[in-house]
Write a protein that binds this DNA or RNA. Sequence first.
DNA 1: TTTAAAATACCTGAAAAAAGGGATAAACGA
DNA 2: TCGTTTATCCCTTTTTTCAGGTATTTTAAA
Lengths: 208, 208
Amino acid sequence: MTTKFFIVDDHFMVVEGIRSLLQDEKSVQWVGSARNAAFCMAELLTRNPDIILMDINLPDKSGIELCREVKQKYPSVKVIGLSTFNQQSFVKKMLESGASGYILKNAAKKELLKAMDTVMRGQVYMNEEVSRLLRQSTGPEVVLTKREKEILSLIAEGLTNAEIADRLYLGTTTVDTHRKHLLLKIGARNSAEMVKKAFLKNLLQLDS
Amino acid sequence: MTTKFFIVDDHFMVVEGIRSLLQDEKSVQWVGSARNAAFCMAELLTRNPDIILMDINLPDKSGIELCREVKQKYPSVKVIGLSTFNQQSFVKKMLESGASGYILKNAAKKELLKAMDTVMRGQVYMNEEVSRLLRQSTGPEVVLTKREKEILSLIAEGLTNAEIADRLYLGTTTVDTHRKHLLLKIGARNSAEMVKKAFLKNLLQLDS
DNA sequence: TTTAAAATACCTGAAAAAAGGGATAAACGA
DNA sequence: TCGTTTATCCCTTTTTTCAGGTATTTTAAA
């Protein structure tokens, strides 16, 4: 029984690398690849893979969102997340979106095969390093309201409470209240620390 | 005249991908690979490549440092930087360390060949996207003194001037002066903005 | 309809940062 | 040795944040 796998990654080298690594394996068979989410969805109409190896940073859409879409439209297709780094929040979101596994791009052939085998047996496969990171989870995930996110972003741009209030048509004391809630939720003593921790917890991103 | 190339990257998939992509090319020949800097230096004793394709994030040492070492010991070997992202400061440092080129991991076979050919002709090869980024360079690179870096790091941890002064056996006004210099150098109006910009300019890192 | 969460808004006072200057001493490289 | 950079330190004032509360209205889901 051959497992059919499909690769979604904009890195030619990675696609070719996986294909080449596994081409002599009897238990798995490459059925195609896509460099972005849109093409992937189009190809799934005809390729019928058992497993998708899915990069989490695609040019047109995040792997998290694509994973959600794939699981919705093709519930029996298994998704394994693929990344160069093991940031906790991404891993969690990927799993929440329906992924059955997560491996890093430094994985060797042996691990690729093991991940696919585990996932085909209906279990979840986690890379050892990623698994360790998840286990040392530091407290509950921070959930910000829409307004809080907005104000956090503006604080990080250097705006004062008064400026933010003007921007959002609020009173300055309202902004100050949100700011206090942010400090509490993020666990920071002041704005500098809050911005740093927001990056660490992926509440702020570097790509602006 | 065949160009011999060597790959340094801890990502099995990438190494295999490049090797496989280029294995039918007459003009280039794969002579080996290493997963870390130490092994690379050991292998260079016998492999004699013309070009090294070098990942900038190695497990034991940065590609920037390895590049410097390679160019020192083997000045005729060309180095092409290899990365998943095109952060300006890394590109610059890589070039300053003696690299002759820089490509991204989404490069196709054609670009790999072109990069190697360009570099063998004694010219510098820059990926288009990276080249564009360097051209829209936003002012001079920020250079912080040792003390400034120290204080920036502590500000980002949420310490007040008084706390930092205690930590470093300084007066609070000294800390305040450094803080002012930091704001000026980084181009921020307050500490929150400064922390964000410090991450953007790679003056602060997420791995602490 | 009811409940809980989010949004909005406020008060006072203290702490901290920021602004806008000033200065001297120490360290480093040519 | 000399010139430049870095480090250290200060002053006063103003602005802004932070702490520790208070409250009502709106919104969304059960």
